[in-house]
Amino acid sequence: MNIFLREMKANLTSLFFWSLGMLFMIIGGMAKFATYVNSGQSITDLISQIPATLRAVLGFGDFDLTKASGFYGMLYLYLLLMTTIHAAMLGSNIIAKEERDKTTEFLMVKPMSRSRILTAKLAAGLANIALLNLVTMALSISIVGQYSTGEAITGDILILMAGMFILQVVFLFLGAGISAVSRDPKISASIATTVLLGAYLISVAVDMSSSLNALRYLTPFKYFEAAPLMATGGFDVISVMLSLGIIIVSGFATYYFYNRRDLCV
C-alpha cells in the first residue's frame, strides 16, 4: 500500500500537466469547430465526395465535420495518441525508474516480494490512466456539449472513452513488459514509444491503402476507431480479444522476467 501511495504521489504533478494538455486539446479543437462550421456547407459537401483513401491522406477521415460529434470523432484520434503516449511512458518508467535513479537497492531490501512490488506499481499505473481517462471524459462531455446543438453526444463519448481506456491499459502493460525485460533502464521508455509510433504509422498506412487491410490487426490504433464505434455503439469482438491477449501476455511477461532478472543497482 505504501508503494502504491508513493507512486500516486510521485506521478501527481505529471498527471496534472497531462490533464491540462487534454483540456487545451479539447478546447482548442472544438473552438476550431465553431469557426469551421461557419465557413459554409459547400466545402464539406465536396469533401464528402473525396474517395476514402484520399481523405485519409489529406487527414479528413470518415466524419461529417459539420456536426460536433463528427468533429470530435476526428479529434479523438489525437486524444488517443496523447493518452497512449502517457500510458506507455508511465508503464515503462514506473518500473525502470528505480534502476535509473539507483533506488533499486533501497526498494529491494524491503520485506516484500518483487511480485508484490510490481502489483503495487501496476495498480498505481492503472489508477493514473483511469484518472486521466475520467478527466478526458468529463472535459469532453462538458466542452463538446457546448457545441452540439441539441445533438445527443454523451453516449458516443462514453463508448469512445471505454475504447480509449482499453488502449491505455494495452500500452501501460506493453511499457511495463518492455521495462521488465530490458536491462538498460534508460532505453526502455524509448523502446515503448518506438513501438507506439510504429503502430501509429502502420495505422496511417492501412488507412491509405486498402491492400494493406490485412495489417489492421497488427496495430492497436485500428482496434477502437471513432467512426465504427460511434456508428455501431459496440466493440469489435476480435479487437477486444486481441487487446486482452496483449494485456495478458505482457502482464505475464512483466512478472516472469522482473522476478528473474539481475537488477542493476
Binding site: W18, G21, I85, M89, N93, R100, S190, T193
Partner: peptide
Amino acid sequence: IKSVVAVSLPTVFG
C-alpha cells in the same frame, strides 16, 4: 532531466 523522452515526446506531439 531524469528522462529525455518524457520531455521530448509530449513537446513534439503537442
